[in-house]
Structures are given as C-alpha cells and as structure tokens.
Design a binder for these strands. Structure first.
Lengths: 197, 197
DNA sequence: TAGTTGTTTGAATGATCAATCAAGGGAAAG
DNA sequence: CTTTCCCTTGATTGATCATTCAAACAACTA
C-alpha cells in the first residue's frame, strides 16, 4: 500500500472520528507510522489530504456505500430505505456517535476553500443522483408532477437531519422517527399516484 | 454590560461564524477588549464559555428567535413556515454561508462533554417543543393518528438538512426545495384529515 | 562504477494555543 | 486612614500546531 493510500485511509477514519480541525498531522503520522517528510512529499498541505479524502468518498460511493446497502434489494423505492437502514446500522454500531462524514465536514468547515466546497457539493450531488435514479426507476409509482430531484434531495435532508438529532440525543429513535416520516411521505405520494391512475 | 455578557455575545457570534475550535480565546479577547485574566475570572475554561453560549440560546429561543419570526402570524401551521422563512432570510443575508448555530456545534463537537451534549439536546428539544405546540394548536387539521412529536422533529430535520445543503452548494434553492417538500407533506396530511372528517 | 532520480528521515522552526498568576486598582465597610 | 473584597492587568508558560529541509537512502540508468 502506497504512502498516499495509507494517509487517505487514516485520514478518512480520523476526520470522521474527530473532525478535520481536531485531527493533527501528528495524529495522521502516528496512525500511519510515517514521518512528516513522507506525508508532505505526497500532500503539499493538510488541506490537500482533506481534498484527497473528499475525492475518495466521491469516487467510492458506489463500491463502498451503495453496493453493500443494495446487495439484496431490487425494488427502487426499497433501495432508498435500505440505504437508510444502512445508516441506521452505522448509528447503532457507533453507539449513536455516528455522523455522516460529508455532512460533518460541511458544517465544521466554515470558510472552506472553493475546491473543498465544490468537493463537498459533488459528494452530495453524487448521493442525490443515486437516489434520483431510484425514483426514475419507480417512475409510475409517483405522481407525474412530483419533482424527482427535489424529492431525492429531500431524502438526503431527512437522512442528515435524522443523523444529526440521533447523534445529539444519543438515541437512534430520533433517526427512526425521521425515516418513518419520510416513509409516510412516500406512502402518501404512492397513494396519490394510485388514486389518480 | 458585564464582562460575562460581553463574552457571551462575542462568543455567540464567533462560534457561529468560525466554529468552536477555530475560535481562539485570543479572538474572544480582541473582540471584547478584555484581558485574559478577566475572561478566566468569569469562565474557568473555554468550554465554560461554550456552555454559557448554549444556555443563552436555550433561554433566548422565544425572545430572540420565535417572537420575531411569529410577529405577524397567527395560524399555527403558518407559524411553522414563517419560522422557515425566517431561516431563509438568514441564509440569504449571509450569502448562503448560514449554518444553524446549534446544528453546526452539534456536528463539530465529536466527543462533547456530557453537559455540552445535554445542552445541545436541550436546544433541539426546546425548538421542537415550540413546533409541537403549533401542531397541537392545529390539532383538528391533522390526522388523529399522526404522531405530533415525530412530525415536529421532522420539521427540525427538514430545516437542518435544508440549511446544510444550501450552505454546501451556496444556493438557497436547496433550502427552498426542502421546505417545499415539507409543505407538500403538510398539505397531504391536511388533505388526509379533511377526507376522513 | 558513478550518476541520477525519487523517496524517507526526523530534528528543528516559528506560530498559535488555552490557561496561569503575581501584582495592582478601586470601591465599600469599619 | 485602613482593611477587605472583587475584579483587572498582561506578561508568561508549556503544549501543540502545521510545515520545512538538509541529509541519508534506495532503486534504477548510463
């Protein structure tokens, strides 16, 4: 494994656990058993490590996140809720300390570089595009006038908001209630599409 | 104005602008024109300033947030969307850099003190309780089986998720779409209640 | 063998951090 | 005037921060 890969892997974990500002370069060095010169040979600055991490999340969304969550699910709308169950598992496994790596960084970095901000946005964009594809695959089950893109973004909204509250209250039922509301919303939409048909 | 009040006011603004970790004690001192000894005479540590800030938000939610947002609104459900418009104004006024002060702190602080975590939770709790009261005031317009508390939490979910995306994309329409979805959800609920009645 | 290129070493640098504390100021009480 | 009490001053401390760089090393090439 190259030094670059080692650093990216360690940074993905540490930024997620402690945040970007609270992760020191020394933390990355001790975790990877590298020396500072090696790190700075690969990355000009700590921010470039962050950029590498955000690129890794962006490029790995299907292999690392969606494929595992959708391994046994075919129905497009159930795929959405399977992804939510995946996040629920992460919340439970971390004793409700889980935070979405992208969402946490998006709120932690108050004056991000344009490049960093665009990568955060690209990560959200990739995520919602995948949901939008699910909605496209379920086309006839939704009212024709329903805005697919807005609905996909709303799924992200519900996930991020639910994760934030579950983490703050250290209680996964806050996430569960957010997802239950989202499910109710989809049920109402599917009902409306059926009635009209 | 007492030293304590000066510090709390400055800290509310700086924590909101830069985050907790990125706000140094030196920042607070230069903003307040105080010396470090004065600050540490009032607050044993920087974290105690944070606690003071969170208590101020908790205690000021009605006077500082809800009363202004609801000045000209009576209808309980419109109160909810008036509050959302209030947040929209904040987003626009800050060129889409706005972040909910509580939500940002909740995601920035990865291993918060129990006291800090409880104050974050209390802030969310106060907020959702106010929404829950609106829902109680609109009782007959909602289906009787609809879970009021879950719905109130979902309003917070939509707001936080919408703010996060608007900020990340630097585009208020992401917030607008989240609120439009929330409005659609309420419309569907009100419709369901009407049909059944 | 000698030279070239790419990589690693790790001590050092200067900035910045939160926090300390002995000394002094000033107002009220005796 | 003297004592007491609360508050302020601001230089100082030691830790930690991101980053640098001359020197050493390793793997090829001529």
């Amino acid at each position: 494994m190259s030094a670059r890969e080692k650093i990216i892997l360690a940074a993905m974990e540490l930024f997620w656990l402690k945040g970007y500002n609270s992760t020191s370069v020394a933390d990355l060095l001790s975790r990877t058993q590298l020396n500072s010169g090696s790190l700075y040979h690969v990355f000009p600055s700590k921010q470039d490590v962050l950029i590498g991490v955000l690129e890794a999340y962006r490029d790995g969304i299907h292999a690392q996140l969606l494929a595992p969550a959708w391994a046994a699910v075919d129905d497009p709308i159930e795929k959405i809720f399977a992804l939510m169950r995946h996040y629920r598992t992460l919340i439970v496994e971390t004793d409700c300390a889980y935070g979405c790596p992208i969402g946490s960084l998006a709120l932690e970095l108050h004056e991000p570089d344009p490049q960093v901000r665009e990568l955060l946005a690209a990560n959200f964009e990739n995520w919602t595009s995948a949901i939008e594809q699910c909605l496209a695959d379920a086309d006839r089950r939704l009212p024709p006038q329903a805005d697919r893109r807005a609905l996909a973004q709303f799924v992200l909204t519900a996930m991020e908001g639910g994760v934030m509250q579950a983490r703050t209250h250290r209680d996964v039922t806050y996430f569960d209630r957010a997802i239950a509301q989202l499910r109710a919303h989809f049920d109402l939409l599917e009902n409306a599409a059926r009635v009209r048909a």
